[in-house]
């Protein structure tokens, strides 16, 4: 039986963002933008969606005089990611 895939994570950009945040404590917005190759506007929208779902925590601060956005994965985000990987595994097991 297939496990349902979390629709919030089943998107290239949101999945890449969560995956980048999984092994770090926090990452700045420019880093995520650079690694995903997304536009600032699109990434900002996707980050807002993840943040609204409680999957990530967004902190807006300043680094010197420059505004700085820092993203961190939350425990809910970590759980959702684990469930997503588990669901993916059930799909792959059926295929093989």
């Amino acid at each position: 039986m297939f496990k349902p895939l979390d629709p919030l994570l089943h998107s290239e950009l949101r999945l890449a963002t969560i995956s980048l945040l999984i092994s770090v404590e926090e990452a700045e917005f420019p880093y995520i933008k650079e690694q995903t190759g997304a536009t600032a506007g699109n990434l900002s929208v996707q980050i807002d969606k993840l943040s609204a779902a409680g999957y990530i925590e967004v902190e807006k601060t300043f680094k010197g005089r420059r505004p700085c956005t820092i993203c961190r994965i939350t425990s809910a985000g970590l759980r959702a990611f684990e469930d997503y990987v588990e669901a993916l595994r059930s799909y792959l097991e059926v295929k093989s």
Binding site: L20, S23, Q35, T36, A38, Y91
Partner: peptide
Amino acid sequence: MEENNNLTAERSLEIIRKSIEQSRRDMV
């Protein structure tokens, strides 16, 4: 990277693998 919701399981795993590898490399 676009907002593509029609991902295959393999493509999802590929994104996860690449992203985790990339962030681990960049950490150090």
